Simulated scan of single mutants.
Amino acid sequence: MAGIGEPLVRGAAGVSASAPAHLLALGRGIERADATARIVEAHLLLARDHPLPDAADARLVLRACGADDAADARLGRGAAIDLLTADRSHPASIAHALVEARDAARLARESLPAELSDMLVATRARLPRKVVEPRVPDFLAWVRERSALAVGIIESAVARDGAFELIALGRRLERAAATARLLAAHADDPESGPGWMFVLRSAGAHEAHVRAHRGAPTAAAAIELLALDERFPRSVAHGLVHAERSLRAIGVDGGAAGLAASRRAAAELSLLVEASASAAAELGTAPADADRARARRASALRSLHAAVQQATREILVALD
């Protein structure tokens, strides 16, 4: 990486050679804790209104949060929620993300305001070892508040230098990855169904969808907003566009090709959504046509998720 040990943005304070990976991990940890809390919160509402068998319920929320290894272990719903909230050893859990953010801030403390480090230390100290089921909603609300507080401190107290851009890059990559993973987890859902309401709520996009579309959510509307709309801050497209800007600001060449591949996958998905909508209008709702369109959409969503994952890996290697 060019410029390690030198100012990463002209006129800015320097970032030490060991700090970039830690600052990136800080941004990713904060964003992952918030994203997981939102997904579990939305899942509790979905499970209340549209209950599933226990094992299927657990697999759905685990895959949406990226815990595919645990999803294959056939955990029950209670065990899945416990893993995603308080299991500090599992990388998909909220507790693991917040501990990682605290550790990353400690290792990059020379580049950060003491206020942020102190807040993350206090958050880590208050993490419970177990969250009993009646307290899960309160815990999720607390996690979202602490994540918002961390972001607020970063926005108001971190100079717009290399440190800020690296944290922002981590947040943007993690947000794009979380949304792509969420869409891929529901890739096989029917065009209209409760799963797309869950997807929108998980990404904080339900109100934006209502204002734009009215009526019940559909796969096409959810994908248009969460994968393709660069104006919506939790969309994959928004995350990738702003990650590119952060990469240019800090002078990192590695990873740019991966982001370009991700954006090409998103463009292909956009064409697919348009073609599916046109086909539905022309051909009606014949089951065979619907099945083919759903299979193509599912393949495109999984390709998008894989492309975002690859871009993140390339950037991590470039910053190592």
Rank of each mutant, 00 (worst) to 15 (best):
G29D: 12
V317F: 07
I4K: 03
A279R: 05
P51S: 10
G284W: 08
G215S: 14
A71T: 13
E191P: 03
V151F: 00
R74D: 05
E268A: 09
L301C: 04
P7F: 03
E274C: 13
S270I: 08
V151R: 04
H43V: 15
S156W: 04
D138N: 10
G239P: 02
D82E: 06
A185K: 13
A80C: 10
R171P: 02
G27F: 08
E110M: 12
A25Q: 15
A108N: 05
L26R: 05
P194I: 13
S156P: 01
A80E: 09
F139W: 14
A97W: 02
A67I: 08
D57A: 04
R201A: 13
I315V: 06
R144D: 05
E165R: 09
L166F: 08
A148Y: 03
A288W: 09
R245W: 06
A275N: 02
G78D: 15
S147Q: 09
A221P: 01
A180M: 08
A101K: 03
I154Y: 00
V40F: 02
A122Q: 12
A33L: 03
L228A: 07
A256L: 05
H209M: 06
I4F: 01
V236L: 00
V273C: 00
H242V: 05
H213L: 04
A306R: 15
V143D: 00
R146S: 03
A35G: 14
A307L: 13
R181G: 15
A298N: 07
A306H: 14
A86W: 01
S202M: 12
A178C: 06
S156H: 07
L182P: 02
A184F: 00
H22P: 07
H186Q: 15
R38A: 12
P190G: 02
R109P: 07
L283N: 11
P7W: 05
S192Q: 11
R10N: 11
D320I: 09
E274N: 14
H22F: 11
S299D: 10
R48F: 01
V308Q: 08
P113A: 11
A306G: 15
I223V: 11
A220S: 13
A219R: 00
P190Y: 01
E268V: 10
D54M: 11
A79I: 12
A58L: 01
A122D: 13
D57M: 02
L107F: 03
L116W: 01
M197C: 15
L169Q: 15
M1H: 09
E155S: 11
L24F: 14
A42Y: 04
G204P: 06
T123F: 00
L283K: 10
E224R: 10
A122G: 12
I167N: 06
R263Q: 09
P53C: 12
V210W: 07
S18D: 15
A227V: 06
E314W: 08
M119G: 10
F139S: 14
A105G: 13
S202F: 09
L301A: 04
A80M: 07
S276D: 11
G170N: 08
